[in-house]
Amino acid sequence: MVRAPDTPRVRLDPRAAVGHHSTIELVKGRNAVIEYRIERRSGVSTYQQIVQQTKQALRLGLLQPGDKLPTAREVVELTAINPNTVLKAYRELEREGLVEPRPGLGTFVRRSLARPEAAADGPLRADLVGWVDQAREAGLEREDIAALMASVLEQRFDTGVSPATPN
């Protein structure tokens, strides 16, 4: 059971075993880098879920340029989704210039989507934390806050286009 040092370690989420969702976690050194979580019944295609979750990780700075994405084989072995879907998602990310395949090595992050403003220690996040605390004090539940947030986002951005729509 010797593992090459650069091989990503992949872990099956214990909850994934019984539900229709799985988590895949890429560990580099000690820190989790990316975690794909496939929700079978979310209505969003698995391909979109991988694209979105990768972008999310890029936005949050969890994935940095030079990081290796898990291979299609690693993803599908633990999520039990179609490998062509993973490849398609990676091609989409490649088309957007976010990742690049290096033949024989794998797929690597080229560009980060992280914005300093959205970083964990950024001022915008601190503002949002303050606002959420305020909402809780006002008696709102988690779901209420999420609904309010979604509604505001929909109002402020284009209502017709949701990020989940393909193409």
Partner: peptide, 18 residues
């Protein structure tokens, strides 16, 4: 059972990927 189904489907998909 759901666990075995998930495991074996994962194995099948991995075989297809590889």
């Amino acid at each position: 059972d759901p666990l075995a189904r998930h495991q074996l489907m994962g194995t099948l998909m991995a075989e297809a990927a590889e």
